[in-house]
Design a binder for these strands. Structure first.
Lengths: 382, 382
DNA sequence: TTGTATGCGTTATCAG
DNA sequence: CTGATAACGCATACAA
């Protein structure tokens, strides 16, 4: 059991004072180049690393950020997305020598409790918040605690920087005006309450524009009756997608009897059930847009079971690509996003916020529609 | 921005000394029932939580444990398993108010570097180690550092407690003797080097017995030519499964020309490629056993593409169940494990080790084979 | 039973 | 440029 070297050991071995060591190791002035180099070398030899507790205690940062995943027990659909996201986050974090505290809880109240505890324990310097909701208590809590945060996936609630111009303009060849309608208010540059806790930073993906791409693709193929198998309606990005879909449809003169969204909990089970229900209706849609890959795969399976040809009688699109989409038969047309890149962006932004940068909204790379075999023109009969 | 209350604030408000507060809050003797209760109440009111840095610094534990996932960049197949595992781990950890430090790296060297850093920084009290390998450097490193650890998935290398009797005895109706052959040595109760770092604890699943169940099922249906699409050969559990398969086959008089394993990297791509290759051989197998769900799903897709009926011409079994296995067509016969339970067990064991319990090997609940539609008797022609 | 003094490893503020 | 010295918040051995 090796002993951990301290700054004192280094000072002794280098024949200097402890403060000299501290200065040298932290790149502060007040130490000659020679001694600095010597101290550095000794520290290296001894394999010294700053004791994170001591550092945190003396007013520095804890060197860790937190991420809580609130998952309602059975909803596992987002896993692929999530691990890729974390992987991207880590890439940036570990380069900056920042640790990630990770916690899985079963609801948003528990998530808030975790933030409170982490804050009180001084465990983290900031947090990454996933799954923004339409009515989200977290931004306000975090602002109140003064815990730096970055919202992943959208603008938050209290006073966050909203993605101004986050609509579907100029998306595709049709580009039928504003495709947003997320209800995000105007920019509110600060809170003016002297708390120092301004709006939260966020990283966001342009769901509206992505939905426009999907609609362009399907409309271009000739589809006029399209159903969106949406995810949890409480999530902000679901709401944005639904709003965008409606806006896009209206711009093409298609009413709710042609184009609509039905909500699910993102699980394969509800994805399958929704598919079954929709296909059994009189005058069923000719195309389905699923809000995640798991539901799309479930939908393919349902169609196979019912003997409904894909894409012969119904086309299918998955939002988010994954290995799954490439192993189904037919392979799924999917909206490909650089999820790891999204995570990198979020981590970069959090590091920037911790370094004192003002909050901002950063847009991730545009999603790209990858047409595969599951989409084709609708059957002639329709 | 609220201020964090300290023990001093409590002392002042309760009109006692700081040490009295410390004693009261840590359930130590030396404080009357009354004052203890009062102190507790005040602490509650103030929303006090111990500052983790201060606690760690004064010789206590850091209150965090670590988990590193070394993932070779593209191998994403184990995700479903992994998030369930973490979810189970957290259930136990958060009940014990222990945080989880999580890190994704891209190789085992990087993983070792993380352990070293965490140790030097005093960031974690212990670690959970996943994906034990046949030749694993990590147990030795951890013992050397004196970092408490629990190996998840198997016995480790240096001097860990191996699963004595971890074979397939009494598995099913056939139970053809020892199904192990993992090469795990005899119990080594300690290292006797006075380092205080004894063998590592581990939690393990009886892969050998599980493989016996799978073979019982397939053999019982009449299959005699079986191919195991295995995972990464360097992983200990892959090795155990392969050894068990061979032992089981031999016990039934089936040689390597009938029953064998082919290795992959766990990805859907290699799973598909292996399936394609195996099915193209002269005298192909009548049953395939996949080492994870993702490869099995890919296998189903390949069969569909080639127009090979499942289970009409070939039966398929997935090791590890997930939503995927229930949405394929036909639904996959799978080996169901309580992965979250596995995680809980591991976390419990780590907490026990941190509390001073001697290392031990703890077996998880037996996996259970869930027959679905993808397995049936082989075609009569074979 | 209670209060006081010290240390944990680091950073930061002073004098020299 | 260097060397003491005081925080930071908590635990604890010790004295009252």
């Amino acid at each position: 059991m090796a002993r951990r070297p301290t700054i004192k050991d280094i000072a002794r071995r280098a024949g200097v004072s402890e403060s000299a060591v501290s200065f040298a190791l932290n790149d502060r002035p007040g130490v000659s180049q020679d001694t600095r180099a010597r101290i550095r070398r000794v520290a290296e030899e001894l394999g010294w690393q700053p004791n994170s507790a001591a550092r945190a205690l003396s007013g520095e940062r804890s060197g860790a950020v937190g991420l809580v995943l609130a998952r309602p027990a059975q909803t596992l659909g987002v896993e692929s997305f999530f691990l890729q996201l974390v992987s991207g986050i880590q890439e940036v974090l570990s380069a900056g020598r920042v640790a990630l505290l990770f916690q899985v809880v079963d609801g948003i109240e528990a998530e808030c409790a975790v933030y409170r505890r982490w804050w009180a324990e001084r465990r983290v310097d900031g947090v990454l918040v996933v799954d923004p909701r339409t009515d989200d208590p977290r931004p306000e809590l975090l602002a109140q605690l003064g815990l730096p945060a970055v919202l992943i996936g959208a603008a938050g609630g209290t006073g966050p920087v909203p993605p101004a111009g986050a609509d579907g303009n100029g998306a595709g060849p049709v580009s039928p005006g504003r495709g947003d309608g997320s209800g995000a208010g105007p920019v509110s540059p600060g809170r003016g309450d002297g708390s120092g806790a301004g709006p939260l930073s966020c990283v966001w993906a342009d769901d509206a524009r992505a939905m426009a791409q999907v609609l362009d693709h399907l409309y271009g193929l000739g589809h006029r009756r399209i159903t969106h198998i949406a995810g949890l309606p409480g999530l902000a990005h679901t709401a944005r997608r639904m709003a965008s879909l409606r806006a896009q449809a209206e711009a093409r003169g298609l009413g709710p009897e042609h184009v609509r969204s039905v909500v699910t909990d993102y699980s394969d089970a509800e994805g399958a059930a929704a598919t079954r229900r929709v296909l059994a209706e009189p005058g069923p849609p000719t195309a389905l847009v699923y809000d995640n890959d798991v539901m799309a795969v479930a939908g393919i399976a349902v169609a196979a079971e019912l003997g409904i040809a894909v894409p012969g009688r119904i086309s299918m699109v998955a939002w988010d690509d994954s290995a799954l989409c490439r192993v189904t038969h037919p392979r799924l047309t999917a909206l490909v996003r650089d999820t790891a890149g999204f995570g990198r962006l979020a981590a970069e932004e959090l590091l920037a916020v911790l370094a004192g940068s003002p909050p901002r909204a950063r847009e991730s790379e545009q999603p790209r529609l990858e047409p595969r075999e599951s989409t084709a023109p609708p059957p002639a009969a329709y």
